[in-house]
Each structure stands twice: as C-alpha cells, then as structure tokens.
Design a protein around this nucleic acid. Sequence first.
DNA 1: CGTGTTATTGACCACCCTGGTCAATTGTAT
DNA 2: ATACAATTGACCAGGGTGGTCAATAACACG
Lengths: 209, 209
Amino acid sequence: MKEAFISLDENRQYEILAAAMDEFAEHGFKRASTNRIVKRAGMSKGMLYYYFENKQTLFDDTLDFALDHIESHMLRDISTGTEGFIERCARLSHKKQVYFNQYPEIARFITSAYFSEELDTDQKKRRDHILKNRERIIFDNIDLGRFRDDIDHRTSMKLIAWTINGYTREMETMMETEGMAFDHFDEYFEQFDHYLAALRKLYYKEEYQ
Amino acid sequence: MKEAFISLDENRQYEILAAAMDEFAEHGFKRASTNRIVKRAGMSKGMLYYYFENKQTLFDDTLDFALDHIESHMLRDISTGTEGFIERCARLSHKKQVYFNQYPEIARFITSAYFSEELDTDQKKRRDHILKNRERIIFDNIDLGRFRDDIDHRTSMKLIAWTINGYTREMETMMETEGMAFDHFDEYFEQFDHYLAALRKLYYKEEYQ
DNA sequence: CGTGTTATTGACCACCCTGGTCAATTGTAT
DNA sequence: ATACAATTGACCAGGGTGGTCAATAACACG
C-alpha cells in the first residue's frame, strides 16, 4: 500500500479493494489472478504495482481493510442492556443481514478467509479474535426468565439460534439466486416478524409473548 | 470411459473417480487439473487417457456415476407411510448425515455441481430433477394433526426444518474441524434425540409428545 | 511556452502449469 | 518366444502467472 494508493479518491480505493476481495474470495490467495483483479478494477497491470508492492501485500492490506471495516460497521454498538434471547438473535441477525446486503464483497471475502489456510499466524489470530467476540456477545445479558421452564434454557437457545440462522440463510440464497430488489425488503421484514412472533409463542412464557 | 476402465477392479474404479470428484469439487471443471487428479489417484498421466477420452468425458462420466450413486444409495426407499413432520425431517436428515459421512467425496462433488454453471443442459436437467424429487417428498404424507393449532402448520414446518438443518450443519462443521471419530457417534444421536423431544414438546399437541 | 513531476499504459519477461500424445517399456498369458 | 495388454513419463504447443519498465500522457508551475 504505497502513498499513491492512499492519496487516491476514497471511492476509487474501494473499487480497487472490492475487485481484489471478489477475486480472493472466489479463488483464494494462491489461485487468485492479478490480471483478473486489474480487469475487474478497470485499470492497467502497471497501476496495481504502482499502488501495491506485490500480490502478498495487496492481500494483506485488503484483509486489514476488510477486518477493520467489519469491526467498525457491523460489530460496533451491538452490545445492549438485558433483552430476550429471541430479540437478541433477531437483532444480530438483522444487523448481519443489512451488512451483507450493503457490502457483499467484504462479507464474502471475510467468509472465505474464515476457511482459508493461507493466512499467516497474526491474521488467523485477528480473524479468530473477532469471531470469538461475536460468539460471546450473543449470550451476554439475556433475560432467561422469559423462557418457559419445561424446556432447558440452553436447549431453547440452541434451537432458536438454529431456527433464525435457517431463516436468514434461506433469505440469503433467495436474494442471491433471484436478485431480490428493494421492494421485497418490506415483505422480508413482515415475514421475519411473523416467524419471530411464532417463536415467542413457542419458547416464551405467556406473559412475555 | 473406455473398456479398459470398465474392466477394472471396482474399488480401483472408485478410487479414480473419487480423485476426480475431489478435484472437480474443489476447483470446478475448467480449473480442475488432470495432473492433480492422476497424482491423487496414484497413477500416471497416460493411464487417465487410457481410461477416458479426455477431460470433458471424464467429468461427464464422473457426474453420471455420482448422480446414479446418490439416487440409488440415498434417495431410494425414503418414501414411507404417514408420519409426523419432525419424524420425517429427522429421518431424512439422518439419512443424509449417514450418506455424507460414508461418501463425502460424492456429496461434496454433487454439492459443488449444484452451484456450477459449467454443466450442459441435460446435466442441469437431471440435477434439478433429483433435487425437486427430494423437496417434494419432504411434505408428502405428513400427519398435520399432530401440530398444535395455535400456530399455522406451514409456519411450524418451516421453523422445524430450519432448526433441524441448523443442528445437522453444526454437526457437519464440528466433524470437519475436529475430525469426529466413531465413538462420538452415539453421543451425537443422544443429543439429537434430546433436541427432537424438545421440538415435539414445542410444536406438537400434548397427546403426540 | 518549457520543464519537471506524477499517473498510466501495455508490451514484455522468464517461469510454470495446462490437456493431451506417444514411443518405449513392463507384465502376462499362451 | 510371441503376442497383446497395461503402464510409464518425457514431451509438446499453448496459455496464464507475478512482476518489470521504457514509453508516454497529464498536469502543475514558472
């Protein structure tokens, strides 16, 4: 990441990084092609090496950017006071959904990095640290009193988390295959509320439904 | 697929096809390397072309084999009489789990083919036909009377399917990352029964729990 | 206008891997 | 000894790789 790149217009920076993220996400580091990256970004081969030292630092800088971005955009301000587990899952899920919709390149890139064996030790550490944080926060400050008592609370939480993940996964694939437009967005949230109401009826005591 | 391959020992045939499936699953048709396939299969380059015409027919024959295999091993005898939806999902999920565990190469290969744009029209048709069948059977002959009536039956079925998929997905990733041995298999089924009992308590009328 | 600086190009490099071939060798059964 | 099947891996032309660099284009300042 040379000064030439840093002094670039911010939007142009993002376009280039997005091209790199798309390519790295699809092929991994080793099989990613710098030729395809410059083609995607609409620039010449020379410019890439005017902006970055080499393929490795391009990848490192891109990963740094992506992790910074997801930390500051998705993981900031997700802590709250006490709430029900269903509400917690729904909130986090919604936040994730919005982020994935707004920055699909970053989301895909980080997802692929999650399974990658090509990261160095520091990068793996940072990636795992972020994921650990997310897992911790989901069970923090939950009002367990809302759960019906004839089912173990841990069991309820597992089942609810699986259910809501299933719903969001189905929506994701629907959006990917059909290319969901913004007018379906309301419909999506209506449906979501419908299912959440059902979940409350199933898992909560009557007074919390 | 020349006679030389057909007259081969069946196990050896499978080893070679498995090597091809691994490679195609990981890289898709175009980026798959015949050199890596022969290395995985432990044979020389020449033999591959002694057994198959070229890369394309190798892929076609491999896909044919895989689709035949999954049809006869996983999709045969999955129809039954009437049963509850939870029991249906659990049964199909279990069957899938067992198959994925026994033939992971085939499962991965077909999964990758599901998203592939590199198939020809006939191959896409056949692939979609198999998947359609599987989707149809899941809602056939379900005893809807078991569901509690204060929640819409379609809603219940959606929620249950997402939940059980979530569980099996978690088990799959656990097995992939930790390399689950057979001694954990019992534990896995115990847990599964535990969650199924909870689901029955949640979604069924009292007399069916 | 000239001059110096920065941005930008794409032809070019040596290298590696590709799908596929084939003459040569080994194994085997008669 | 002979015929035939199985098996090898060096080899091919072609294409893609990460990376370089001399040549320009664009622009700023005087």
